Amino acid sequence: MATLVIFSASVFMPVIGFLFSMFIPLPVLFYRTKLGRRHGMIVPLVAIAVIGFIIGGITMDIVFFSGLMLLGFALSEMFEKALPVEMAIVAACGIVLGVGLGAMVMYSIASNTGVVSLVSAYVATNLKLSLQLYQSIGIPQETIDAISGSLDRIQYVLVRILPSLVAASTLFVAWTNLIAARPILERRGLAFPDYGRLNRWRAPDVLIWGVIGSGLIMLLPATGFRLIGINGLLVVLTVYFIQGIAIVSFFFEKKKLPRPIRVVLYIMIALQQLFLLVIVCIGLFDMWINFRKIDPDKREPDLPA
């Protein structure tokens, strides 16, 4: 029921629905941890069946929501293994992306449509729905006309950077649910790995070469190489965004800001693109500046929620 409530909110509240959809993995993660693998599998399977009935068959939306539920299941699986937090997140995301790609290929075969054509049609449909949403919430008509005239160009770009958008989104959702799951599991007396204090987490130093390499590839004249560079850069910068958020959380904790103020500030970060860029830069330059002034080799146990 918790999964279906979150699903309904994400579908029927389109303006803020994406915030609800981010937490679809959470109830699956909880019940997989509580009930074990065999019984915990019932939750996503029943939820997928009910969602399929509501939507009216197998669609790309089913693949999307199924992937989110699989992410929660995979995260719980990784909790039972002695893996560092980075490996647990990467492994869970790898499982979801691999299964999702396989499901999309099978769906394209069943519908007798190429994968690229399928993705292009899906992106085009959602762009038109987004345009209708903008009209319904009172966006100025001049802006609507400007967006409408650029839909083909927007679709062209989105289709080609979709791999990195999907990977980056999966990575961020996995990290968000990891943080959200800890207090819930600990309050119920369920096991949660000792990953240390996550607001002290930092990306491996070697990852900076991903930024440099992707930037250099983007300078090449061939369009195909530039697309590879853009996709790689988006994924790597997502990791640094997560590190930047960890730094922000560290200072929120240090200054003992009340929880309501923290929530408002996090919402502002989520809604303002300028703040997003600032957070990415903070995470990126932390390798040299060390904003938190902490020893990267020193590991502290996490605090109870």
Rank of each mutant, 00 (worst) to 15 (best):
A9D: 01
L19D: 03
M22E: 02
V28H: 00
T33H: 08
T33K: 14
G36E: 02
G40V: 08
V43K: 04
A47V: 06
A49P: 08
I51K: 01
T59I: 03
T59V: 03
T59Y: 02
D61N: 09
D61M: 15
L71F: 05
G72V: 05
L75N: 00
M78F: 04
K81N: 03
M87T: 11
V90R: 01
C93K: 01
L97W: 01
L97S: 09
V99M: 04
L101A: 15
L101W: 02
V116R: 12
L129M: 11
Q132D: 10
P140C: 01
Q141E: 14
S148K: 14
S148Q: 13
L151D: 00
D152E: 14
D152S: 15
A167S: 15
A168N: 10
S169W: 06
S169L: 08
S169F: 08
F172I: 14
N177C: 14
A180F: 00
P183A: 07
L185D: 08
R188A: 14
R188H: 12
L190G: 13
G196C: 03
N199E: 12
P204M: 02
I208S: 05
V211W: 12
L216F: 06
L219N: 07
N231S: 06
G232T: 05
L233P: 03
L233E: 00
F241H: 03
I242G: 11
Q243Y: 01
A246G: 14
I247S: 06
F251G: 12
K256E: 12
V263Y: 05
V263C: 05
Y266T: 10
M268F: 13
L284V: 15
N290E: 07
F291A: 04
K298R: 11
P301T: 04
P301M: 10
P304E: 06
